[in-house]
Design a protein around this nucleic acid. Structure first.
Lengths: 214, 214
DNA sequence: TAGATTGTTAATCGATTAACAATC
DNA sequence: TAGATTGTTAATCGATTAACAATC
């Protein structure tokens, strides 16, 4: 049950993006030195991270680009597409529905849910919007395991509860509130304010430092 | 130049959200024990994290909720609103333009930019969309420091280069590609695939474990 | 071959956690 | 007062980095 560290897990998609762009440029072999330089990190860290995929390289030559790509995709389970529901078809929800790119990452959104009668029954980016009242029932019947949660924060915990009760095993939560994990359910909280906080704090710190110099 | 750790910086907005909801419930004092329990982490970690804000608590009583809120907001520099440009008014860009909530976090998007003639000149959620050809010039003239980058990955590095050349000091990058930081510029890469990778890997791992038990 | 790169083992560094005196 | 909570110092844990033999 050796668990992979969160930082490593987070870096793997970055390597994948780079590797895919290298593959497009018909690059066959790549060294950890090059990957590291390209992403501005240390080569030894790249080597340690890639170790988890089980892909082995050749001394002097490096890794076969396509092997690494396959290895990372398999490791993240992006080769198995999963059906998912998206709940809350607001601005952000619609944007996610419209972004086809997530299919590449194993995410296949098959329906949207909302409580707004003007939205229910409509189709957005080819995906039908259903009544949120039917959510629990449909999760059970269709055995959907994955949910994208893009409702306002005030509704998020309640809806999460309903979904978990109905059999949802993983929630990708975009609502600006923390949803507690429980046994047997995986929650990934995407906090944009978190990310913005890092940015604004560092920017102000940097500006302070510059003015100190003067 | 004591620098705050990234994990701490990331947790601060979580505390803030919780504290604000407590304030709405007219709660005056809060202990780190309660915060920790509410967010599913350790009390000692909360205490250590809150230390960076400089806010002090009272033994036995805890912290004054409103003091902590002010402390975190000040620390993240969310009390100083900053003018920002958003580049790339696609689905995600529009969603971000439409979300008023970021004003609360010091982000004031004053204009959008795109290269699509059908979008240029229009107004989305009250914000005017301008020609991307004018981007560099306007950054200089208006002395804008912050940019939200929501263009397709292929254009991101080039546009980032233009922006930095024109004087942008912080980029909140949503494009699915890594933009390298350079001296004097803060980059925060929001990688949704990263987040999705953590979720899908853990979900598949969990399912494996369950089937092992059987 | 010579030299670059891998993979592994050990050392370092930093974040988290534990312990406990101070305090209201 | 008694007991809960803070704030600080020390211990632990885990991730990153360094060192180096193996290898093509």
């Amino acid at each position: 049950m050796e668990s992979v560290s969160l930082p490593t897990l987070r870096r793997l998609p970055k390597y994948l993006m780079l590797l895919q762009s290298l593959e497009q440029q018909r690059v066959i072999y790549v060294s950890t030195t090059l990957i590291a330089h390209e992403l501005g990190i240390e080569a030894i860290q790249v080597r340690k991270d890639l170790e988890v995929t089980g892909v082995v390289g050749k001394p002097k030559v490096g890794f076969v680009v396509s092997d690494l790509i396959q290895g990372i995709i398999r490791f993240l389970n992006w080769d198995n597409r999963r059906e998912a529901f998206l709940i809350g078809v607001g601005a952000l929800g619609s944007a996610i529905l419209g972004y086809q790119g997530f299919r590449e990452f194993g995410l296949d959104i098959i329906a949207g849910f909302d409580n707004d009668p003007r939205k229910i029954g409509k189709t957005i980016h080819g995906i039908e919007i259903l009544d949120i009242a039917k959510l629990g029932n449909l999760i059970e019947r269709m055995k959907v395991r994955l949910a994208v949660l893009t409702v306002p924060a005030a509704f998020a915990p309640e809806i999460a509860g309903i979904m978990i009760f109905s059999g949802i095993k993983a929630i990708w939560n975009f609502a600006p509130c923390h949803i507690k994990a429980r046994e047997g359910v995986v929650i990934e909280n995407v906090s944009l304010s978190q990310s913005l906080g890092v940015l604004t704090h560092r920017l102000s710190k940097m500006e302070q430092n510059y003015s100190e110099v003067i």
